[in-house]
Amino acid sequence: MIDLIPEGKSIGWMQAPAQWIFTHTVRFVGVVRIVIQDGEGFILIRRGTPLFYYFKHGRIELHGRAALDYFNSHPVVEFNMCKYTPEEFAEALRICNVEGESSPLPAESDAPAPGLPPAPRATVPVPEPVQEPIPEPVGESVPEPVSEPVQEQLLEPEEPESLWEPEAVPPPVRGSQKRTWNIFPQTAAPKTPASGVPAPVISPEVILDETDIKIIGQIKKLNGVVAISVFNNENNILLMGNVEIEPLLNIARSMLVTTNKIAPNVDWGSFVHMTLQVPEGNVIIAPYRQYHLCLLTTRTINIGHIRRILRDLQQTGEQS
């Protein structure tokens, strides 16, 4: 079935709890392709309303509630949001045999599907979309989560400044070649959810629309950008990139504390960004709407290009 539905236009790969998808797709029409270990599935979504759930692992197929429960049983899932045209969406509905919008959850057995990889937890999302290392897929039915590259650049690249000149950086690794960046000390491993802790509800105020996700996805695609996060004081809201999010956010929040400390003593206009460079790479924080962006980059990043993007983002934000 996965192969039959239209491919759509990829907005980008990201990782978050499955529930995040529903609260952040109010303007999205398309398919969210989900990869869990060596299985693959999808959710058809029309403006925040899930119309069809599907997951396949080997010969095992889950539909409806069973598939949703399986998605929810993972703290974080990796997914690719693919936008549909009305024609593509109609075609997908036809293939999935969804009539109208009346049956978003076809009744299915709640019994756990035998043979599926065990989920790390029983139910629902974790407090934060903590990056979970993706196990190396095994077996012959490994799907290659290939995201369609977004061709248009966020901004036209300008003359690079020579602060940190860009070098040829290999394209982001995908699918089975993915790796987690371990640039942080082992003692700063990401938090694992404590079992039995009530699952927090993702704040309904935390809304990133399709445009936000596209912009962030485009920044992530820039050479040298290892990971990008949208965060606030409490949570990581969105993460793109294979990196341990908690140590990264510790650094980002520490930088934010510094900017807050000096704010009363500087009269230099609005804060644009702070970049901390260490031999291992750069961490950049910048305001983004009511949140903050955090970028982890290699030393080879074209910082001039990033600066312009961040400045333009803020100008756009101030105008809107």
Binding site: I251, T258, I262, F271, V272, T275, Q277
Partner: peptide
């Protein structure tokens, strides 16, 4: 403040040394 804080923050990178810190405002 920027120097002292940034040196401390750089240490979160596995005791890395500070190579550069750069804070930009609109002006």
């Amino acid at each position: 403040t920027v120097l002292l804080d940034s040196r401390a923050t750089a240490h979160l990178f596995g005791n890395a040394s500070l190579s550069m810190v750069f804070i930009e405002y609109t002006d």
